[in-house]
Design a binder for these strands. Structure first.
Length: 545
RNA sequence: GCGCCUGUAGCUCAGUAUGGAUAGAGCAUCGGAUUUCUAAUCCGACGGUCGCAGGUUCGAAUCCUGCCGGGCGCGCCA
């Protein structure tokens, strides 16, 4: 952001003046206390040792020497070794003008320089519907993808389907058993079968449509039938959750095209494969994994890892500059072996990031809700979406760091009360819309921004809002830096809070035409930022509530 | 047993990447605010040995070591 850049440059000039050549990256933070200004740096602490002076002395000296553009920074001040910067009114107003001018684009940037990033998300095995936990991963991944797009990356969202293997066979066996059951035959349910109610429903659909003519059908038929039914359900659920997948990649296609054998050949050529006890092993322990892994089993069949290696190599071949995988934390054991394989194949470590999200602990009014996929005891994404609403769910899922174990209380999420931060943010937006609606009714229109005297915005509440608005692009950028998204909801709540405070103390539409105009510009700015933030989260900004 | 994540106010969590100012929110509780553009709002109060114990440092919620609690994972399953 240009303001931060200007401050940074002014610090560098001052450092040069006192002949400091080596210094760490200059960090500008937002101080907790208003009296400490808008930005502050702790650079003096880092220089203390080398210069053999106290941080206070250094900071004091620097504060005198730092001369940023007086149109942007009104005051530079030293306190307790920190150097604090105070923005001018003028820069706050300029930023508001920027917001009104750029509208949807405020917060967007070109940081990503058009690089191509692929995000692999959800990738849930097609053996059953998506459950709530998967929803968290989906919401998180989609939001991160939105943010990456906003800062100028070209993003592709991909879902990888494990459509072959033992699990699919078990799925087919399970459906067959359910189907035959419906036809009144005695059948034993397969040992590793999927017991969920959804398979009974699929069996019923099959029977209703086609009667008993599939009684003698092979397992493959049932596998195929269950698979496509479930995948269609997953696709619908994601669509209704507001998530668009650009590419669906099937494991079976990789196999058909010989990609797996090709990858194994590559690994072999580089000396990372060996045979032991009739199986083929990958020497992953040499590359950071805790032990070697089997790639091809004694019976000649390939492991999950074999496909995964081929899959990721294929992604690289498709020309992405960077790969991101969003995985549930229950897969963390696979991170190292996959990374090992990628470095064995010569792909730089930095080009693949695997971000884990912790599982969702679902409860209802404080009581935990049990979940187990195989037994079929779980709450689906669909059910929760229907119960609490798509937007609430997406907000809650993105509100916390992906590393924290999310506590999700169904009753709490449903409440339309102050306990629910989603409505709080949405309400701020609805109030703003309402102001404009009212203004229109009274035939009052916001003038062109050049004709508005923003200097009339001088109350603490107005200033607080302006100061917050200026941070938005930085917040978005920081999400990219640490691959987290929760600062967006947190920021939106803070902005909504500042707005509500302002709203309660001051009127926008008043007899004073000049002030009305200035305030209309201000709240329009808030509305734009709220909308932009909510859009990143995939949430609608309501005009009224 | 080993590995990953996690432990901050009564509850749910920010803050930990890059150590820095009196540790921040929301909810809950208590008290107050509405003739006004939406009270799904606002204002105030209460509330903390940052799991415990050491260490490094001028300075530790943040880094290191050990221990304790919670979640997840540890197959020639997928």
């Amino acid at each position: 952001m240009e303001i931060k850049e200007e401050i940074r440059r002014s610090i560098e000039r001052a450092l040069k003046k006192i002949k400091v050549k080596k210094y760490p990256e200059i960090l500008l933070e937002r101080p907790q206390e208003r009296e400490h200004g808008d930005f502050s740096t702790n650079i003096a602490f880092f220089l203390a040792k080398e210069l053999r002076k106290t941080p206070q002395e250094i900071a004091k000296r620097l504060a005198e020497d730092i001369r940023p553009d007086p149109e942007i920074i009104e005051k530079v001040e030293e306190t307790k070794g920190f150097i604090n910067f105070f923005l001018t009114e003028e820069s706050l107003f300029k930023n508001l003008i920027q917001i009104l001018k750029r509208e949807k684009d405020y917060g967007r940037s070109e940081l990503g320089k058009g690089e191509r990033i692929q995000i692999e998300m959800v990738s849930v095995n097609p053996t059953g519907p998506l459950h709530v936990g998967h929803g968290r991963g989906a919401a998180f991944a989609d939001t991160l993808a939105n943010i990456l797009e906003a800062v100028g990356y070209q993003v592709e969202r991909e879902y990888y389907i494990n459509d072959i293997g033992t699990q699919m066979e078990n799925l087919g066996k399970s459906l067959r058993a359910r189907y035959l059951e419906l036809l009144g035959e005695e059948v034993e349910f397969p040992e590793y079968g999927y017991q969920g109610e959804y398979l009974v429903k699929i069996a019923r659909r099959l029977k209703d449509r086609e009667g008993n003519k599939h009684r003698k059908e092979k397992i493959e038929f049932f596998t195929q039938y269950a698979h496509s039914d479930i995948i269609e359900g997953i696709k619908r659920a994601l669509k209704d959750f507001g998530i668009g997948i650009d590419s669906w990649k099937k494991e079976s296609d990789l196999r058909k095209k010989g990609k797996v054998e090709e990858s194994l050949k590559n690994l072999k050529k580089k000396g990372y494969l060996y045979e032991k006890e009739g199986a083929l092993w990958f020497r992953s322990s040499q590359l950071g994994d805790e032990k070697d892994r089997v790639i091809k089993k004694k019976d000649g069949s390939l492991t999950y890892l074999a496909s995964d290696i081929a899959y990721h190599e294929d992604k690289f071949k498709r020309g992405f500059d960077h790969l991101i995988n969003i995985w549930g934390a229950d897969h963390h054991g696979y991170v190292e072996r996959l990374r090992a394989a990628m470095s064995a194949l010569g792909h730089p470590k930095e080009s693949l990031d695997i971000i884990l999200y912790q599982l969702v602990k679902l409860s209802r009014s404080g009581r935990p809700v049990a979940m187990s996929t195989r037994k079929g005891e779980f709450i689906t994404l669909r059910e929760v979406m229907d119960e609490v609403g798509r937007d609430v769910l997406r907000f809650f899922f993105c509100m916390r760091s992906s590393y924290s174990h999310l506590d999700f209380d169904l009753e709490l999420a449903k409440k339309e009360s102050p306990e629910n931060p989603v409505y709080y943010v949405e309400y701020a937006h609805a109030r703003i819309s309402s102001i404009f609606k009212k203004a229109k009714e009274r035939k009052r229109k916001r003038r062109k921004i050049q004709k508005i005297d923003l200097k009339l915005l001088h109350t603490p509440e107005e200033k607080n809002i302006l100061r917050l608005l200026i941070l938005f692009p930085d917040i978005v950028a920081s999400c990219v830096q640490n691959y987290q998204v929760h600062s967006i909801p947190n920021y939106l709540r803070e902005l909504a809070s500042e707005f509500h405070t302002f709203y309660n103390r001051h009127r926008v539409l008043s007899e004073d035409e000049g002030l009305t105009q200035a305030r209309l510009a201000l709240v329009e700015g808030v509305g734009i930022v709220l909308r932009n933030g909510l859009r990143l989260l995939g949430i609608a900004a309501p005009e009224k509530m």
